[in-house]
């Protein structure tokens, strides 16, 4: 529907926009009633969230007195949904969940969680930063009320992202950032605001970045998101095969391509993830190391960090051979194999 796309700086800002609009709802009109949270209310997240979909909700709870609850993880890197019906209950106001973990690669069953959330009247906020660039995403099938993503993870520029929201919700939601471009009438005594999306796009817009993101969307659409997903599934399958055949390599995340995207994290016995990454870097294989802005995942699995390979439409099977060979070289260098 027109007016459902709000341009933001990135996915992080999109999620903060919703979280801050919810605390602003306390002093907004009656139309904002459903966004109000306070003591006794609950916000549900998961242990696999990127900090961008965790910290804003911790902060919302801190500002409003609401309680933060979360889904834990299974040993194989899936969401533990055993407590779904008790975790998401009549006190739940928001369920914030990722559509694909940026560390584990896991694609949680968002539709199943959203169905339960809607049955108790909660708002469903989906972090699509890792899914929108890598697979076809249909917000209606997903059951999302809000979905945020970033341009720079989908061949677009930095400094631009999207918050998609259901029109009736955006219509009722109070603004987060206020000022120019978002007002209807301003008097010294007070102001009224434009309808969405303008209400949420204060200040001079990032025009150049928006055009860049548009071009990236057209490019990906032309290739076809089905084909992007298919290509990545092939890469993930091969990466899992090549990495797990190396003694001393431990996967952090699901070991199959089922409900899984193109982020493959692992540790190597006896070698710190940063050292694995450094050896790979010197061989021209670019991976990321650390906790990947999802620190609770490392805590859950009792590891300081992981080495993570991620794939996109430009990667090839040969890249994965280079990755596996590089891991073996690191083992040789540090004398662990």
């Amino acid at each position: 529907m027109p007016g459902e796309i709000v341009l933001t700086k990135n996915a992080t800002e999109g999620i903060n926009l919703v979280a801050y609009a919810m605390s602003n709802a306390a002093t907004a009109g009656p139309e904002a009633e459903r966004f109000r949270v306070g003591p006794g209310d609950e916000v549900v997240v998961t242990e696999m969230e990127h900090h961008a979909n965790l910290v804003p909700w911790q902060q919302l709870c801190q500002r409003t007195g609401a309680t933060l609850r979360w889904f834990g993880l299974t040993d194989d890197g899936r969401l533990d949904l055993a407590e779904l019906d008790t975790l998401v209950n009549e006190r739940t106001k928001v369920v914030a969940v990722t559509h694909q973990s940026n560390v584990l690669g896991t694609v949680p069953p968002v539709a199943l969680i959203a169905e339960r959330a809607h049955r108790v009247g909660a708002v469903v906020v989906v972090d699509g930063a890792q899914s929108v660039p890598h697979q076809p995403v249909d917000v209606a099938t997903l059951g999302a009320d809000f979905l945020a993503f970033s341009g720079h993870k989908m061949l677009g520029p930095t400094g631009i992202g999207v918050l998609w929201g259901r029109h009736e919700l955006l219509e009722a939601m109070p603004p987060f950032i206020t000022g120019g471009s978002m007002i209807e009438v301003v008097r010294m005594e007070g102001s009224t605001f434009l309808p969405p999306p303008q209400r949420f796009e204060a200040g001079v817009p990032m025009t150049a970045q928006a055009v860049g993101l548009g071009a990236a969307c057209d490019y990906l659409s032309e290739i076809g998101m089905d084909r992007v997903r298919e290509h990545e599934e092939t890469l993930v399958g091969y990466a899992l095969e090549r990495l797990t055949e190396i003694p001393g390599v431990n996967l952090v995340g699901p070991g199959t391509t089922e409900a899984r995207g193109g982020a493959v994290s692992f540790t190597v016995d006896g070698i710190h993830p940063h050292d694995v990454g450094q050896v790979l870097d010197e061989l021209g294989v670019e991976v990321r190391v650390g906790h990947h802005c999802a620190w609770p995942i490392c805590r859950r699995y009792g590891i300081p960090a992981t080495t993570r390979a991620t794939f996109y439409l430009y990667n090839t099977l040969a890249d994965l051979d280079a990755l596996a060979d590089g891991v073996r070289q690191a083992q040789k260098f540090f004398g662990t194999a």
Binding site: P273, G290, P304
Partner: peptide, 11 residues
């Protein structure tokens, strides 16, 4: 005594 962390990597 001091406790220092590297927040980007958890060291």
């Amino acid at each position: 005594e001091a406790h220092h962390v590297n927040p980007t990597c958890g060291d």
